[in-house]
């Protein structure tokens, strides 16, 4: 079975029921993707699958044939990723940081679909991502800042 992970082709022959989050963290050592609840509720394990946000704790490896997976490690190498990460830092949106890689992935999924979102659209886009520290407002500001600064990138 083959799929693309951060622009590289990966062949996978292991247990098809292994969760994508475990494969990323343990087999690939991509630990930017976090596991919070393991039940699809907190969003900490969010990655992009074919450009759409998904929670990697719910996805078995056997479901990935032909798919394109992007994690925070792949995104941060791109101009879009750099723009998002610097906006998060400049807006002071990062406290403990646990939720942040997934928040950035949710922001990326949003901006891929809508490069000029309003505040409501941003709040909806991160509505499945739980942050225990920031109260969300600074994260919303960060995403709006990235959209403004990154005009033309998405």
């Amino acid at each position: 079975m083959e799929f693309t992970l951060n622009s590289k082709t990966v062949r996978y022959e292991g247990n098809p029921l292994t969760r994508l989050v475990d494969f990323l963290r343990e087999d690939m050592n991509l630990t930017g993707t976090k596991e919070g609840c393991g039940e699809g509720e907190c969003g900490a394990c969010s990655v992009l699958r074919n450009g759409k946000l998904v929670t990697s704790c719910l996805i078995p490896m056997g479901a990935l044939a032909g798919d394109d997976i992007v994690t925070i490690e792949g995104l941060r190498e791109t101009e879009q990723g750099k723009c998002l990460i610097s906006a998060f830092a400049d807006a002071g949106a990062v406290q403990c940081g646990f939720c942040i890689p997934a928040m950035v992935m949710a922001a990326q999924a949003l901006l891929l679909a809508d490069s000029d979102p309003d505040e409501e659209a941003v709040r909806l886009a991160i509505s499945g991502n739980i942050c225990r520290c920031t109260g969300y407002d600074l994260i919303v500001d960060a995403i709006l800042l990235a959209a403004k600064r990154g005009k033309g990138l998405w």
Binding site: G38, E39, C57, P60
Partner: peptide, 16 residues
Amino acid sequence: GTDLMVQFRQGTGISP
């Protein structure tokens, strides 16, 4: 898998 992967999960690092 959004019902089944939750129902038969074993925990971090262990396949359902």
